[in-house]
Design a protein around this nucleic acid. Structure first.
Lengths: 167, 167
DNA sequence: ATAAACTTTCAATAATTATTGAAAGTTTAA
DNA sequence: TTAAACTTTCAATAATTATTGAAAGTTTAT
């Protein structure tokens, strides 16, 4: 497999995996492209490489910046804006896990808590609703906490500094 | 909040969370409905409760059975088929994690492995592609393994048997 | 064997989501 | 201050995905 083929395969696979971490195809592909690029890319570069429109590129770059995984890079002497993505996979995973938790898991946990807290009127169906949503609440909270713990585990400041030193 | 409102809230929230575990809304809602039901439900029951068509119900029940989280229940004397879902959240989580891993994560791991194994031609861009996809490969594999471990951790046969005994 | 009771399939349609492209907006250089 | 270079916005459109409903298929009772 040659470079170009490998590159395309990576970008398209990563793009279709987007759903797994809750983002759309274009967004995931832009991130993938930046992830393997050796230098910051302009909007022009991205449009050309992925064959998508200016508007699409602009909107998705904005979203990636909202997520905190892509940043604008100002290159001296250049009028255009350039973009880079977080290159450290550990840090990338940390940011993604945190954002998903905040955007999707937390709201669900909140509803599960509300629903599982309704007044027990003694009927079987109410008891079942309370019991099952409580179990789901506990599971979801535990899973979320564990995920965050895992993803943060080797990311305390001293490890981080050491990693940076030896890179 | 009354039973009916709580029930609807739970079903619709769980439905919209479907994307998080990679299934569609109707599928998630059917599972949610069964999850809090005190008895097996027929297709008729589900259609009526969720206000969806027969075809839709049939197709999504089939998918839930493919996932292994819903089973047909044959009720003596009844002509219709009845359905139940796995009621133990731990087991539910275990099945879902396993299925997602098999359906989505493994194929991506495979591509990452292929891409990160291309011949290093010495150019900077090839080196970067190899380095970054290798890092992603390692991270994905580790995360997947950890997820499965967590989800399985309290599910060895002896614990399982004990849980069943005391339920 | 027949028909009633039920389930599945799938082409048509609806709903949702992503993408475009051009106009409007912004920044910078001269 | 003007205009060129660039980015953003958003209504229109395209692409994708979900849903319907009726015909075809299956099972069971008589």
């Amino acid at each position: 497999m040659e470079y170009q083929e490998a590159k395309e395969k990576f970008i398209s696979t990563w793009g279709s995996l987007g759903t797994l971490w809750g983002i759309n195809k274009a967004m995931a592909q832009i991130q993938a492209l930046l992830f393997i690029s050796t230098k910051p890319l302009s909007m022009e570069d991205i449009m050309e490489e992925l064959m998508i429109s200016r508007g699409n590129t602009s909107m998705n770059l904005r979203q990636l910046m909202d997520w905190g995984i892509v940043t604008k890079e100002l290159i001296p002497g250049e009028r255009k804006e350039f973009f880079t993505t977080e290159k450290d996979v550990q840090e990338l995973a940390r940011v993604i896990a945190k954002e998903r938790s905040r955007r999707e898991i937390q709201p669900v946990v909140k509803v599960l808590k509300e629903v599982s807290s309704i007044k027990d009127d003694g009927t079987e169906k109410t008891k079942e609703l309370i019991k099952q949503t409580k179990a789901l609440h506990d599971l979801t909270e535990t899973a979320d906490a564990m995920l965050n713990k895992i993803v943060n585990q080797q990311q305390n400041w001293i490890t981080k500094s050491l990693i940076k030193l030896i890179k």
